[in-house]
Amino acid sequence: MNFVSIDALRVACQDLPAGDAAAAEAVARRQDTLTKPQGSLGRLETLVAWLARWQGREVPKLDKVKVVVFAGSHGVTAQGVSAFPPEVTAQMVANFAAGGAAINQLAKAAGAELDVVPLRIERPTADFTLAPAMDEQDFLAAVARGYETVEDGTDLLCLGEMGIGNTTAAAAIASALFGGVEQWVGRGTGVDDAGLARKTAAIEVALKLHGEVLHDPLKAAAAVGGRELAAILGATLAARHKGVPVLLDGFVCTAAVAPMMRLHAHGLDHALAAHVSAEAGHRGLLAAMNLKPLFDLGMRLGEASGACLAVNVLRSALACHTGMASFADAGVSGKDEGPA
């Protein structure tokens, strides 16, 4: 889908299907008949209902699971905000293609298909301490590229990113949408104290420079974000329109979709936070966006690694739901309600 303007994109972010409540209710009813105390599998039970709602199926499936990693380059790296040089972005894209990254192994283990989508990585976005990271056309093109990666018939989409400098962009978006600065700034790839100070200073400069547009979530994402973040936004929007549930990765991925939540109170109901990362601002950002992560393993890699790992949790939840016997089928006595 090509968005002709930010206003057109805004309308698309606000005109969202609500999901299939009847499918979710059917799952809940079946859960109550299975050979276990009601609710004893905790979130495993509600995860299946979530899948059903957003797939529009009373019996969800996970046959076609896609992992999409978007890669982008950031001009703000000129401010010394990363511990790694900007050329690492292209080098890691090559590593993904060669099968040598963590996400390659995790996708294989999860039975998921991996796509890596570089977004003009040879041409970094503008240094947002000096100019908007992207003009409207560049931003919309990245959103559209993300949107078109979501294939019809996908059962579950895992989203992630790669881009030296993108934790700075993510912190800048969080600052623009939720206020404050320092609580969103973390060490990213491992910057020292001086590097952390440079990140904070760069974001403060950017907020002053672009202040007049930061009230608009989409214009803020263009001004201080990055192409891979814009593409994640586009893919998440496409997933909502196409009935595909989404697993979000870490801090950068969460910041990338924050504009959808700001534009629609239920804009991210079809998306789950896979984990809370070790990046400093992620826990607070999840809380601000009312997202409850599935696990906390101290991960901070990106690459959709946490999202992909969560596929195994969903597979287990679905296996229990579809494979367990009911009390009646198994000849097991149900909960004793006492004498009439």
Rank of each mutant, 00 (worst) to 15 (best):
G188R: 08
Q14T: 13
A310P: 08
Q38F: 03
A12W: 06
N95G: 05
A278H: 02
A304D: 10
A78P: 01
G163S: 06
A255Q: 07
H275G: 06
K242W: 07
P339D: 03
A238F: 09
A221F: 00
P37Q: 11
A238D: 06
F84V: 05
A94T: 12
A12K: 06
L62D: 12
S326D: 10
H275Q: 06
R227N: 03
E58H: 04
R227F: 03
A102L: 04
R30G: 13
A325G: 12
P293C: 13
A176M: 11
Q183E: 14
E25C: 02
A280W: 01
P217C: 09
E279I: 09
A83L: 03
D152P: 00
L209P: 04
A21G: 07
G153L: 10
G80P: 10
P118T: 11
H241V: 01
T35W: 07
M134I: 04
K335Y: 12
R123D: 09
E337G: 02
G39P: 10
L44A: 15
A287D: 14
V143S: 05
A176F: 07
C308R: 00
S5F: 03
I6L: 15
V213Q: 05
S175H: 07
L272T: 01
P293E: 14
L229A: 06
S316C: 14
D329W: 00
C253M: 06
G99P: 12
K242E: 10
K219L: 14
K108Y: 05
T167L: 07
V48L: 11
A90H: 03
V311S: 06
D155S: 05
E182C: 00
V76I: 15
V257K: 05
G80Q: 11
A110W: 02
E161G: 09
L268E: 04
P132S: 14
K335R: 13
L233T: 03
L301N: 11
A230S: 14
